[in-house]
Structures are given as C-alpha cells and as structure tokens.
C-alpha cells in the first residue's frame, strides 16, 4: 500500500495521501494540494519557474522529492501576500511591465524576494546573477531588472 505523509506548506500542515514514490514537490503542490501558482516548465531545474522556499532556501521544487520534504517549512508564491493584496515585488512587476505571458513570473517573484532579503540593494550584475536561473522567454528581462531596482529603491526609503 502507499504511504501517507504531511507537508508544512505556507504555514499549514497538509496531508498527502496515496502518493507515488517518485512525485516531486512540484507535482504534489500543483496536483495534490491545489497550489498551481508554482509553475512547471522543464522539470530539470533549468528554468526556475517552480521556485519555492524550503526552510527559507530558494530551490526548484521539481528537484525535491516531495516525501523528503516532510518536517520542513515550504513557502510558495501563494504565501507572499494575503488575498486582495500584493507584495512589493509583485506590485513592482505589474507596474514595471515585467509580466507578459506570466508563466515564469511566480518563480521570478520568489527569486527576487529571496535576493532582496539577502541583498537589499543589489548591483545590476548581482540582480542578473541572482535571477540567472529563472528563464523568461517574453520580456528579455529588461523590465524585470527595472522591477527589482524599483523595490530596492522603495525599501531604502
């Protein structure tokens, strides 16, 4: 028979039932827990669309065996702001025109939050390096860089 386990996701304990061994955290978040904000674009850690925080560390959820994340604190894009509100990074993405198709956006927003939590005023090159694992095919990144610097400037104020 299959096993059952619990995951801690966005501050809540969530049961996972009847899982298959090989399921990634990405799959479990999206298909079992209804948290579809974390996106699936490559399943090999080469695009960053599925970025989440595990114990405050930014990782690709497609490369996390879901059951191995028991007892760890998982945060997804859904946790960034309460309903009806936006985080500063989310708002900046909208205002800066950093969103086109939007598929890479949740992952990028997770990566940018992580960057700015660690480096409040990153240089241009630091921004580029920090989001170099998040592919975007629509924007050419220019408006994303702008969004990051807008938030950095706002937070300095």
């Amino acid at each position: 028979m299959s096993e059952h386990y619990q995951l801690r996701v966005n501050g809540e304990s969530r049961p996972v039932n009847d899982a298959w061994l090989g399921e990634s955290l990405l799959y479990v978040l999206r298909e079992r827990l209804g948290l579809a904000g974390t996106k699936n674009a490559c399943e090999q850690g080469e695009c960053g669309s599925c970025s989440v925080l595990i114990d405050d560390v930014l990782v690709c959820s497609c490369l996390v065996l879901a059951a191995s994340a028991m007892d760890r604190e998982i945060s997804t894009v859904e946790s960034l702001a309460p309903d009806g509100d936006l985080s500063d990074v989310q708002r900046a993405f909208v205002e800066a025109g950093a969103v086109q198709c939007g598929f890479c956006t949740p992952g990028l927003i997770m990566a940018v939050h992580d960057l700015l939590d660690q480096k409040p005023s990153p240089s241009d090159l630091e921004v580029r390096e920090a989001i170099s694992g998040n592919l975007c095919r629509c924007t050419g990144y220019v408006r994303i860089f702008d969004a990051v610097q807008r938030v950095a400037a706002e937070r300095e104020e």
Binding site: R30, E31, G34, L35, A36, G37, T38, K39, N40, T76, V77, E78, L80, A81, L86, Q90, R91, F93, V94, V99, G102, F103, T105, P106, I109
Partner: peptide, 16 residues
C-alpha cells in the same frame, strides 16, 4: 497582471 504575479492566473496546465 495581478493574477499572474499572485500565481492565481489559470494556465492551461493548471486545470483540474
């Protein structure tokens, strides 16, 4: 824009 940054925009892979 807002649903997309919140992860609430339903892409074709998000349907259930």
């Amino acid at each position: 824009g807002v649903p997309k940054v919140r992860g609430m925009f339903a892409f074709s892979s998000d349907l259930w």
